[in-house]
């Protein structure tokens, strides 16, 4: 009898939570970072769509420049940024759901480069290509390294191809995708840092929603959903370096 009553209570509370979450709707502020996000589509968007659908929470996707996406989310309730790197500097400004994706930042050169690189320190004498305003640029600044910045990885890959610099620092997926697009032969020389890409929510978002989305995300890792989405992009970029995280 007690068991039956508990079951009814559990069902009612779940139904109540689902109804209350369903009433919520979020604006997901995105910015173009191919192949993660491109015109409201891409790898990160696919993951977010499944996440929100399974959580039974409404959403709309809005595209804007990165800076505006972040500022809008900071200032507006029921907004989130899809996606940014969770960092100590950003920690206290948002509530976090993630990682929606795990990737790596690495050092690349042209395939035929013969500059010897054993450790990161070996390239400190060279200016490194990196995307302006990215977490990778911040990371390099922390080491006091000289950089050459461009607006996106595609431009940097083209600069590398034109031998305007010896090395590029970029996300492994983005570098691989843009190298294909630019028809450049590049090779990974060193992994620098594993990065966690997350959804950053406005600070006033309810803890219940954050907890609920994080729980769903855990299930998506465990049941192979994230890996399946990643695999669906396998003809667009090389993902063997990071597929280890999703096994």
């Amino acid at each position: 009898m007690i068991k039956k009553r508990r079951l009814i209570l559990l069902f009612l509370s779940f139904a109540l939570l689902t109804t209350s979450l369903n009433a919520q709707s979020f604006t997901l502020n995105t910015f173009n970072v191919e192949p993660y996000v491109q015109n409201k589509e891409g790898l990160a968007v696919d993951i977010a769509k499944v996440l929100f659908q399974r959580a039974n929470i409404g959403y709309i996707i809005k595209s804007s420049p990165q800076k505006r996406a972040i500022i809008t989310t900071k200032q507006t309730q029921n907004n989130a940024v899809l996606f940014i790197q969770r960092s100590q500097e950003r920690e206290s400004h948002f509530k976090w759901v993630g990682p929606i994706f795990v990737t790596q930042t690495a050092l690349f050169s042209l395939e035929n480069s013969n500059i010897k690189v054993d450790v990161f320190k070996d390239v400190f004498q060279y200016p490194l290509l990196v995307t302006r305003g990215s977490a990778d640029e911040e990371y390099l600044k922390g080491f006091g390294i000289k950089t050459q910045v461009a607006n996106n990885d595609f431009q940097n890959v083209r600069k590398l191809k034109a031998q305007r610099a010896h090395f590029l620092v970029a996300d492994v997926i983005s570098a691989s995708y843009n190298a294909k697009k630019a028809n450049a032969n590049i090779k990974k020389r060193l992994t620098l840092i594993t990065t966690l890409r997350s959804l950053a929510f406005n600070i006033d978002t309810s803890d219940k929603i954050i907890e609920h989305l994080n729980q769903i995300l855990t299930i998506m890792y465990k049941d192979g959903t994230i890996k399946k989405i990643l695999t669906s992009y396998e003809n667009k970029f090389e993902s063997k370096d990071i597929s280890v995280f999703f096994e």
Partner: peptide, 26 residues
């Protein structure tokens, strides 16, 4: 050896995710 260097807060986040999400990050 790939010996990554990052902020202490990031190390804690990563080990927490490894422990709770079961993703073998390192």
């Amino acid at each position: 050896i790939i010996h990554e260097i990052t902020g202490e807060d990031d190390v804690i986040k990563k080990i927490d995710i490894h422990l709770k999400r079961g993703i073998n990050l390192y």
